[in-house]
Amino acid sequence: MTTPTIPVPARTLASPFHWVRRIPMYILVLLFCIVTAFPVYWMTLSVFQPIEYSLTYPPPLFPQAISFDVFQEIFSGQDTAQRVDVWIFNSIILASMTTVICLGLSILGAFALSGKRWRGQGMFGLLLLMTQMLPEALIVIPLYATIDKLKMKDSLLTLALVDTAFVLPICIWILKNVFDTIPNEIRDAALVDGCNRMKMLWKIMLPISAPGLVAVGVVAFFHAWNEYLFAASLIGNRHLYTASVGLGSMISMIDTPIDKLMAGGLMFSIFPVIFYLMVQRYIVAGLSAGAVKG
């Protein structure tokens, strides 16, 4: 308090019972945490407890016994078209291809948006915004018909190309945001030193933006990883199923044991949860920039 003449309201004085007033807040925080964490806990529990505990009513709320048998089943079954590890492998291939294509294109787009304004930039921004907003389901029919005609169904590369079209705008916004934080002095200095602008992008801006590039990579990777609609309509060959389609097919088979389903779901979620929490800061900055500043 630098100005002692201003009367300090009594309630700001620290009192031994200060925490009492905060109880409602703690209760709310706890409530939120339970609502968000319980489903995840419940899934994990049904994976690691023997299935008979899951199939009793009322179900026990805490683990009574632990078993890892289900992993043997989903990773080493006879039918490779039904194995979660094969699906996850396909998902990794698909997501990696999407990441590479998307990174290349979004570097160009972000660089175009991050320099001086140019005529038509507004239209370009609107095109990106429209693409970002467009529900996939609204163009799944013509895309399916065309790809079917071109005999390009059942290809992970085709799927990666389609997925890129939808995730590209958000990646461009994220990266533009990162590029914008590079001071103009650095760019100008590079140009004065005789770099042309592409060389400056390559030698100066990209190395500085490495964490942002990682964030873009994560977003692109897990967009393809999570995508269901196109994967389900464009991939018919069971050996090429991505994890999302594979799990979707498990849902529609009524007799799939619950521990197997949950184990598949858990395997499918671990990577995105870890990576999203790691690059959360960049994604939120980029999403809100793309969303709030399109």
Partner: peptide
């Protein structure tokens, strides 16, 4: 933040 990182498919499953 957990639910946000969760893909759609596992969310449906849970």
């Amino acid at each position: 933040t957990l639910p946000w990182a969760f893909p759609d498919l596992p969310t449906v499953l849970i």
